[in-house]
Design a protein around this nucleic acid. Structure first.
Length: 433
RNA sequence: GGAGAGCUGGUAGAGCGGUUGAAUACACCAGUCUUGAAAACUGGCAGCCCUUCGCGGGGCUCGAGGGUUCGAAUCCCUCGCUCUCCGCCA
């Protein structure tokens, strides 16, 4: 959530002061009249609060006098009768002020974060900036196959039966495929907890609407998550939701920060609105596994932590020796709550293109404000919002795809990356049995 | 699923209709003492909102939401959560 005071202050400087933010809203597909609406309502809100509080103040004063009189044995019935008449209108004014306050809050929940100044301005993926490229796209002496073809031939992936059992965008992993998925989870969690210092976590895979509001999924992206009918429970679209809300409504100490967690979870996404995209294979499933990296940081350290977190995700790709590139997303291509996002894109020879395998974002105080996660500065002083960051470290299903496509051989067998061999019980090759 | 107990500040924990936004302790911050640290002592210390250039003033918040009342942390209702016991269960 954007700070209403920041918005107010910017607006005071004249229309030009908000121009940059307005532009970023447009790039993110939002309309900017919400801003004017919010600013107007906020003015009204302040007036009404002042009015209601003046009345309330008066009521409190008289109540105090009544208490005094009662204590000294005087008759206060005339005063009580008069206050009785006023009580209703005071309550009404309070309710009205509260209603406007709620309106402002609800609107604030629907507008995206402001981009960090290092983020390139742009409308879509074509304006993203290449930060670096690691590894060379492997040359094959034969035509590289796509993972679904490889997987089905090896009998380690089964989409057809998943369609029967559940529906489209689901899959069975089988035999060495299931084993490879499990090995990847284990491997990623080991690297992040042992080498990168993250505390591992397995969060609830179901959360409530408060948590989803905290991370920014609600109210705007409600249709993206699966709802458990008749409850306030939702399947998590990412472990980011439970892990970020781990400290919801809490006050941390500066000495507690930074706090970093790596969490394994399945992720569930309705993929509403992506009909027809990536319908084949494992790329876009309703359910997939992911290892998530999440950091609660001091505000002044968060961009440094962002670089670090991204490099931790990259480290998995390095160890698996998969070619990839890091993109800095432009204002128009970033997620709703992010101030700055790096995407890691892995090379997929079967599809002959780079595909996102991790997205690492710094939300600054956007989520902390929604979820009310603060810390008390070490030298004493006012509590402040923490900064939250997260990134995939990595999307497991897509990593499996990358391994199948990059490590394929002409006969359709798959060489197991050496870093994974111990996690595969010593198996070095996945071949047709 | 049944029965009971509880939910108060950063934490623990008093208060149970009217100077109680809340005793006390711990934590935290500042200071005295100390070569330094610890201990001891002294003082400070909830958050949010409105208002003010500032000093300050005002309002709200004792799990959440309603209600009773001139007035509610305290009484009533609904919901959520936690704990204990019983049942069931991986």
């Amino acid at each position: 959530m954007i700070d209403i005071k920041w918005l107010e202050k910017k607006a005071e400087g004249g229309p030009s002061y908000l121009e940059e933010y307005r532009q970023s809203l447009i790039h993110r597909g939002a309309t900017t009249d919400v801003l004017d609406q919010i600013l107007d309502l906020n003015k009204k809100r302040k007036e009404m609060i002042t009015q209601a509080e003046t009345a309330k103040s008066n009521q409190n004063k008289v109540s105090g006098e009544i208490a005094q009189m009662k204590r000294s044995g005087q008759d206060a019935s005339a005063m009580i009768a008069e206050m009785g008449k006023l009580a209703g209108s005071v309550k009404e004014m309070e309710a009205q002020a509260q209603a406007v306050d709620q309106q402002v809050y609800q609107l604030l929940l629907t507008i995206p974060n402001k981009p960090h100044h290092t983020v390139p301005v742009g409308g879509g993926a074509e304006d993203n900036k290449l930060v670096k490229k690691v590894g060379e796209a492997k040359k094959f002496s034969f035509k590289a196959k796509e993972h679904w073809e490889l997987g089905e031939k090896l009998d380690i992936l089964d989409f057809e039966r998943a369609g029967k059992v559940t529906g489209t965008r689901f899959s069975f992993l089988k035999g060495a495929g299931a084993r490879l998925e499990r090995a990847l989870i284990q491997f990623m969690m080991d690297v992040h907890s042992n080498e990168h210092g993250y505390t591992e976590m397995i969060p609830p895979f179901i959360v409530n609407s408060v948590s989803l509001t905290g991370t920014g999924n609600f109210p705007k992206f409600k249709e993206d998550v699966f709802h458990l009918e008749g409850t306030d429970y939702y399947l998590i679209p990412t472990a980011e939701v439970p892990v970020t809300n781990y400290y919801n409504n809490e006050m941390l100490n500066e000495s507690d920060l930074p706090k970093s967690f790596c969490a394994y979870s399945p992720c569930f996404r309705s993929e509403a609105g992506s009909h027809g995209r990536d319908t084949k294979g494992l790329i876009r499933q309703h359910q997939f596994n992911k290892v998530e990296l999440m950091t609660f940081s001091l505000p002044e350290k968060s961009h440094e932590m962002h670089e670090q977190l991204t490099s931790h995700a990259e480290n998995i790709l390095n160890k698996l020796e998969l070619p990839y590139r890091r993109m800095l997303l432009c204002t128009g291509d970033m997620g709703f709550g992010s101030a700055k996002t790096y995407d890691l894109e892995v090379w997929l020879p079967g599809q002959n293109e780079y595909r996102e395998i991790s997205s690492c974002s710094n939300f600054e105080d956007f989520q902390a404000r929604r979820a009310n996660i603060r810390y008390r500065p070490a030298g004493g002083g006012k509590p402040a919002f923490v900064h939250t960051l997260n990134g995939s470290g990595l999307a497991v299903g897509r990593t499996l795809i990358a391994i199948l496509e990059n490590y394929q051989q002409e006969d359709g067998s798959i060489v197991v990356p050496s870093a994974l061999v111990p996690y595969m019980g010593g198996k070095k090759l996945i071949a047709k049995s």
